[in-house]
Design a protein around this nucleic acid. Sequence first.
DNA 1: ATGAAAGCGCTAACAT
DNA 2: ATGTTAGCGCTTTCAT
Lengths: 337, 337
Amino acid sequence: MASIREIADRAGVSISTVSRVMNGSARVDDDKKARVAEAMAFYDYAPSQFGRALRRRKSAMVALVVPSASLGVFELGFLRGAASVVMENGCSLVLICDEVVGDERPAFISAALERRVDALLFALPPTTERLIDSLKVLERNGIPFCHVGRHAAEGGASVYAKYEDYTLDNLVYLYERGHDHIVLFHSAAHGEYVRRVLDQAQRTCPGIDVLALEMKGRNIADQLGQVLSKHVVDGPYRAMTNLDSEDLPVLLSLLPGRGIRVPDDLSIIVTENSEDAHRDIYPGYTARVVPSTAMGGHAASMLFDMLNGKLEGDGYRREFETAFVPRCSVKMMKEEL
Amino acid sequence: MASIREIADRAGVSISTVSRVMNGSARVDDDKKARVAEAMAFYDYAPSQFGRALRRRKSAMVALVVPSASLGVFELGFLRGAASVVMENGCSLVLICDEVVGDERPAFISAALERRVDALLFALPPTTERLIDSLKVLERNGIPFCHVGRHAAEGGASVYAKYEDYTLDNLVYLYERGHDHIVLFHSAAHGEYVRRVLDQAQRTCPGIDVLALEMKGRNIADQLGQVLSKHVVDGPYRAMTNLDSEDLPVLLSLLPGRGIRVPDDLSIIVTENSEDAHRDIYPGYTARVVPSTAMGGHAASMLFDMLNGKLEGDGYRREFETAFVPRCSVKMMKEEL
DNA sequence: ATGAAAGCGCTAACAT
DNA sequence: ATGTTAGCGCTTTCAT
């Protein structure tokens, strides 16, 4: 790979002239400019970001941290949004897939520091102590970051889809239609939010019975099968909410064997974790749409605002509205209000 | 962000000693070693990969190129496999989301060259002229790369799930069970492979009628709806194959309205684009499983083999077996052979 | 065992 | 308008 030296030699100019041509940082004679261009083409030349970063003291890279265990639809949407904004700003996106569990010093933080990334994006909320500690390192070093979740960590920004609000809304929607035994699915990451939602629900909906179930691991069919048998067939639950739409087909395939029909025997509200999925929102299924791509894009924008001094880093927070798409997968058990 | 200079100063040693401690490249007095460690902890120090890369003339980065238009289940699986191998080898994965269409010089190639990435991974087959040209640049500069697809491009490696073979197998499977009017879905990337499959099918299965349909854009529901109305309800087609499993729920939701039942009125074989999806293979649906994660992992492995001189770069190629999971979504129209 | 110094590719301040 | 030069953070040879 050629360096600026070789370009300069071939064009018969000094390296600073080559630099000026590349960056348009000063007027250069047309003739020399042309010779430089020729030399660059001749060598497939591309200026090394290492030399440049070393000198400019910025890397033009943004890191996206994703727990490798949970690379799903949400993370993918987030990534798409982030990637497009990052590239618009002339930066590259470095993906850091880490196990965000365990006690040792997180590898992702070292990776980010070593790469001297200009900023960091987290596709998850900072729930563990370990993660929160890592964020402190970033803050100490003045590296902007943005994560997903309800609270903005100190020194950073956050984007939040108002999980608690929309989950409560989902419950109320079902309750108002006569459902008072509802299964609520959630991931580990949302575990701590769920408790507050349940409290709220108790207050808002007298007599409501919400069964919160954490989906863990990959054997979705097993878990859903047990829920169906135990709580729907042999139990009083006739409604489910916050089922990830990517798991819907699994659920659907389990119904016929148990003689369960939607919505006659079971009402369903799914969560669509991307507003720009390659498929449409599941026709027929009442859905809550989380704008993961918009969130990723906005998270990245905030990062650049912080980098450009347009934004105070501390505690900047943006909430996103989810769309509710009522369809026919929810049965009306009583007259609507 | 502290540099090696500051560590050396605080530890009261020279920068070369700090370097030796970091890399374990030579024996260092225990006392000094301890003082260096203390200084590194004190400053949250992480050695700059820029300085290191500049000196070592390698970046410890691998780029993954994905057309941003098609960031789907396959690409995600591929990415997961690649990411884990890349990180095992102490490298970072840089994601390059590019529009791989258009005529100008591809941005992704410049990005890769500027970052001086050690190697490149493509989550797509090199079908367009433009893409193939770009690969030549890589070859000229001795940068190893690996892409998905049937043929290995010159100077590079490839991983291939034997699309043509398994698609033919799917068709034969249906044909042997009495289906001779079959809808075959495919993406633009597979367009050129499909023709050969059709030829093969004609030869292997006398009288077979395969309707190849390219899925394009995001309005899956519209496209599937039209196919159902035109070719199933008002036409002779009673079988579908190679439907991406992520689109299955859309299809399923369209069936009741048209009074179509599976498999009585319609047989289906889906393609599951990841062997480690967060959900199970759709219970009940006959599926072809493409091992995208294994492919991504192996693609990355080959890259490192090439980098370490264990492999000749030119034309290395690895084929992957797909798993066939027969279930009950295919109707037996006649006695099995 | 340790330090001094050169040099990787680039930008920017300075000199002409 | 253009060239010279220092220096960004690191590794590595060469002395000691």
